Computed example of a mutant assay.
Amino acid sequence: MIEVQEVGRSFTVGRRRDRRTVHAVRDLSFTVGAGEFVGYLGPNGAGKSTTIKMLTGILAPTTGRIEVAGLDPSRRRTALARRIGVVFGQRTTLWWDLPLRDSFELIRHLYKVDRVVFRERLEELSSLLGLGDFMATPVRQLSLGQRMRGDVTAALLHDPAVLVLDEPTIGLDVVSKAAMREFLSRRNAEHGTTVLLTTHDLGDIERLCRRVMLIDHGHLAFDGTLDDLRATVPEEKSIEDVVARLYTGQATTGA
């Protein structure tokens, strides 16, 4: 469902005489099969956000090739939008001053979702995510947890084959975080939705992902199961400590 082959992305920064090239991603290759739930980890500045922007068509790779749901993201961005859903935890896709229900209705028109199908999907998602009490509330008045549930619903209304999640539980309280994790797990299991999750919350990774990829300095540093990840630093018991050791290069990686 996702194929990344020897991808690089460079940026030129600075002014005139002080210009230099920054390689955000270097020779990155991986595939994600249909129905997988994969965690994509890395420290700040490692290249995670750049990768996500290339996968969703916001950026074009400098080198290499990307396909998502059979499409080149940067060249077929409009067509790809109908095959993927995207949630950025720190940026909403909802209309700030509109009631939540009206935002969903606008999304229905944008994606040309049949009215009957839309109503059925919205009822299902509303029930699973508990949206009923605030569907008439303007988005700007929602709590962070309520808004995140609204953003996830918005990303799924057109029934995408691929769901890209960037920090979907950031700032959520314990109860809201547990509800979000349960919903995403069920969505993956029952609908076969392919999910790529980037997060700094390793609890999300442990509870949701069967496979983990770790990127550092633009390179893929690890790709394997959680058990494989723990085995890289057998003396550490917590996943947080294992990942910290990987970030600092103090482990034998499985990439």
Rank of each mutant, 00 (worst) to 15 (best):
S185R: 11
G57D: 04
V116D: 11
E67H: 08
T193S: 10
Q146E: 09
T21V: 08
T194G: 10
D173Y: 06
V32M: 12
A136R: 15
L129C: 02
E120Q: 06
L163T: 14
M180D: 07
E190G: 09
A136V: 12
D102C: 15
T137N: 02
P138C: 08
G8C: 14
A179E: 01
G39N: 00
G145C: 14
R245P: 06
E236I: 15
D227I: 08
A136D: 10
K237V: 13
Y111F: 13
L208G: 00
R119D: 12
D151W: 13
T93P: 08
T93R: 11
S10F: 14
L28P: 05
T198Y: 04
A179L: 08
K48V: 09
R245I: 13
M180F: 01
A161W: 01
L110M: 12
L71I: 10
V174W: 01
K177C: 05
V4Q: 01
L59K: 12
L28S: 07
T12P: 09
L229N: 02
T93F: 11
D97L: 15
R147A: 03
L28T: 01
T21K: 06
L128K: 13
D151K: 08
S103N: 10
T252Y: 07
S103H: 07
A81Q: 10
D114N: 13
E240S: 05
H200A: 02
A46W: 13
D159Y: 02
I170C: 06
E120F: 07
F118Q: 05
I66H: 01
G132V: 09
Q250F: 02
L246T: 09
R210E: 14
N44V: 04
L157Q: 02
V7M: 03
E240F: 03
V4I: 05
R230Q: 02
V152Q: 10
R20S: 04
G192I: 12
F183M: 10
H158T: 01
T63W: 12
V4H: 03
S238Q: 15
F183W: 10
V117M: 12
H109Y: 15
T62Y: 03
R82V: 13
E182V: 14
T62M: 05
V25M: 13
G130P: 07
V86G: 09
V174R: 08
F222E: 07
R16P: 06
A189K: 13
M135R: 00
R140K: 00
L55S: 10
I84C: 09
P160E: 07
G35T: 14
V164F: 10
R101W: 06
L98T: 03
P168A: 00
F118G: 03
Y247H: 09
D223E: 01
P234K: 03
L128P: 00
S29R: 01
V175G: 14
V32T: 15
L110R: 15
C209R: 04
Q141F: 15
T56L: 10
G150P: 05
L163I: 10
R230M: 03
G14P: 01
N44I: 05
L196R: 11
D223Y: 08
T198D: 07
T193W: 14
S74D: 10
E123I: 04
L55I: 04
R211D: 14
P234W: 06
L122G: 11
L28K: 00
L110K: 11
R16E: 15
T198W: 09
F88Y: 06
L208N: 00
L163H: 14
L220G: 01
E182R: 15
D201T: 08
